[in-house]
Design a protein around this nucleic acid. Structure first.
Lengths: 158, 158
DNA sequence: TTCTTTGCAAATCGTTTGCAGCATG
DNA sequence: CATGCTGCAAACGATTTGCAAAGAA
């Protein structure tokens, strides 16, 4: 997401109002790269702004997503996560325990084909889905029946 | 996801049972690349297997995700989508109307850094977030205040 | 027969909505 | 002082759970 100043300009330009709630939520989110859920943020904000309601938090988060300032995604744990980091980056996600690890490096963006011409791309992310070391060891995994054969190729580190 | 035969083997190997419900859900999902929600699938399956319950559908979908056979993701529309396509591919997602377009091409996977060593990668996806032509035109977009400056660079088509 | 899975109904829980009061511009 | 925003309480809706009955192996 962009700076508080830019967001302030945008809201004012639209005839909106820059309230203390919006400011605080923006600040809290801007510095948080832990992929928080709405509730994570609520827990952190409530002590600072005790009057804050979940309703306001949700509506503020939703408008940020709609404005393209924040990315909303789901790691598979059934909770909606928010990420203010629009820098192209990659995430490695465990399909069983839903742990997410950020990877700052990213491959070059590809040439998008013609049938998506006209799309204005705001950000890009890569996701590597798999099983973390702990979950691989789980005896419940049917993957173990097959062995390692399914792992997709990743280049050797040089 | 892998073939019905492979799934059958896996379930049996675990002491599980290959029921008519599981078979039908597997078949329906395997051929569906439209990113269906649980309800989408339910609507399609109900006429074929009238006794089917949502409970069973959810538990079958959940186990497929947990087994790493299907990817669960959220486009931002508030619904959980399922994708049996584990072929690395890219998606272009509109942040306002939540439309998803598949892009078959994909960039080369990157070398994953050391702190994710030990992860068994099953699949990879790239996501390009932005605004589709229709949503760009929306007067509500604060993006228009800023202009085109934010669009990230994508290479020219050659 | 044994043990997993199914399906119903009820519970759960994250998120949204309606509306009156409040605060920003 | 006009209007957009907030917060409460209630509604909502997708998903999960408990448990008895059904059906694979």
């Amino acid at each position: 997401m962009r700076s508080i100043d830019v967001l302030t300009q945008i809201v004012r330009a639209r005839g909106g109002k820059v309230t203390s709630q919006r400011l605080l939520i923006w600040q809290m989110l801007a510095q948080d790269h832990s992929h928080p859920t709405a509730d994570d943020l609520y827990v952190r904000l409530k002590p600072i702004l005790p009057g804050l309601s979940l309703t306001t938090l949700y509506s503020t988060l939703n408008e940020l997503v709609e404005w393209g300032e924040v990315r909303r995604f789901d790691t598979g744990d059934g909770h909606t996560h928010f990420d203010p980091d629009l820098t192209p980056h990659a995430e490695v996600i465990c399909m069983r325990c839903h742990r997410v690890m950020d990877v700052p490096e990213v491959t070059q963006p590809m040439v998008l084909p013609d049938h998506v011409a006209g799309f204005q791309i705001v950000t890009r992310s890569e996701q590597y889905y798999g099983f973390c070391p702990i979950c691989q060891a789980s005896a419940l995994s049917p993957i173990s029946v097959i062995g390692e054969a399914r792992a997709i190729q990743t280049p050797e580190r040089s």
